[in-house]
Simulated assay, not measured.
Amino acid sequence: MTISEIYAGFAAREARGVSPAYERLALAVSRDREMLALLGTLPPAKRQPNLLFGVVRFLGGPVEDPAAFRDYTLGNWPAVEAEMRTRATQTNEAGRCALLLPVLAALPQPLALLEVGASAGLCLYPDRYAYRYGEHLVGAGEPVLDCAATGVAPPARLPRVVWRAGLDLNPLDVTDPADVAWLDALVWPEHVHRRARLRAAASVAAAEPPLLVRGDLVDDLPALAAQAPRGATLVVFHTSVLYQVPAPRRRAFAELARGLPGHWIANEAPDVLPYAGLPRPPGAALFNVLALDGTPLAWTRSHGQAITWFA
């Protein structure tokens, strides 16, 4: 897939109806030879729209108007390029916990959670957030995570978590203002509710910071998993992470995750972690597949806003 096709696809499948600003930017970049040539000098994993737009926001550049965005990016390319080469899209969307909750609540309790690609670890606190599935409220406090659920009954209770740990090549510190600023820059411009949700979730995590380990998802996972307390159900999970991992490494990780004790929850795009015999997705937008131990269960939206159960 060409860089132009990546940006056009992002506009059509991810940003349309979700972020008009990013839809405009992605379409403009997809047609801009100079911008595409600059992006082509970066490694393939560093060319993605979310990374480019997040870096420009982080540096204080404009993302509402394509012309202003282009002028800023071209005029400040050395700074933009440097940030894109060193940073990664570590969108730490606590809203994804609403997708995990029906599975987590049904597993043998208590749980030992281990998130792969944990970023700052905000998804390690599904027991500390509140959830609203239509008219059904689960839990109490802030943030309240809204999710449209189809085909699945909302869980009656929150899971009980006794251990939480994360593995990431570059873990972020939820108590560090600079790291939180990067997370904020990754929230799409119009998403005021997601920005407020990020702040509320960061407050929850900062009150009891998780164990975050810098490491590789294959090489370092077994040692971290071995630290989980006995008597708790180990749950290794990840959401929208494996697209950043080369395909051979993905396969090695999937084989490893299947062999660990406990359970493995994956929430990834179907072209990233494929499954045979999937039903048609419920729309033309980008959907992930929620799976437990390699068995697909539901279609999900990337920020946790909807889940459509088919299992």
Rank of each mutant, 00 (worst) to 15 (best):
117 G>C: 04
76 N>E: 06
156 A>D: 15
130 A>L: 09
74 L>S: 06
170 N>C: 08
218 V>H: 06
179 D>A: 11
20 P>D: 14
138 V>A: 01
45 A>F: 05
183 L>E: 14
195 R>P: 02
88 A>D: 03
46 K>M: 05
94 A>S: 12
125 Y>R: 04
154 P>T: 02
220 D>S: 02
135 E>I: 04
32 D>V: 03
164 R>H: 10
283 G>I: 10
233 T>V: 07
265 I>W: 12
227 Q>V: 05
283 G>C: 07
247 A>E: 15
12 A>V: 05
289 V>G: 00
12 A>W: 01
259 G>Q: 06
295 T>N: 06
64 E>A: 15
164 R>C: 08
29 V>R: 00
187 V>L: 04
139 G>Y: 08
235 V>P: 00
165 A>M: 08
54 G>A: 04
213 V>N: 04
311 A>I: 07
200 A>L: 13
150 T>N: 09
304 G>N: 04
262 G>Y: 07
55 V>D: 15
96 R>E: 13
186 L>Y: 11
251 R>D: 14
196 A>W: 01
56 V>Q: 02
257 A>F: 04
110 P>I: 11
305 Q>R: 12
24 R>I: 06
302 S>R: 12
131 Y>T: 05
193 H>M: 05
150 T>A: 11
105 A>S: 14
287 F>L: 05
131 Y>K: 00
218 V>E: 07
68 A>M: 10
292 L>S: 06
66 P>L: 10
7 Y>K: 10
135 E>S: 13
105 A>R: 01
32 D>R: 01
80 V>A: 08
234 L>N: 01
176 D>A: 15
308 T>H: 14
14 E>Q: 13
147 C>I: 10
246 P>N: 01
121 G>W: 13
227 Q>E: 15
145 L>A: 05
41 T>H: 10
34 E>L: 14
83 E>D: 06
61 G>C: 05
108 P>N: 06
139 G>C: 06
268 E>M: 08
132 R>L: 15
105 A>L: 06
214 R>N: 04
225 A>D: 13
235 V>R: 00
68 A>Y: 02
5 E>W: 01
205 A>V: 03
115 E>K: 00
146 D>P: 00
280 R>A: 13
218 V>D: 03
31 R>V: 00
221 L>V: 11
76 N>D: 07
42 L>I: 13
288 N>T: 09
48 Q>T: 13
43 P>I: 08
86 T>A: 14
25 L>T: 09
14 E>H: 13
177 P>M: 07
163 W>H: 15
281 P>G: 04
105 A>G: 03
118 A>Y: 10
133 Y>T: 06
277 G>W: 09
4 S>P: 03
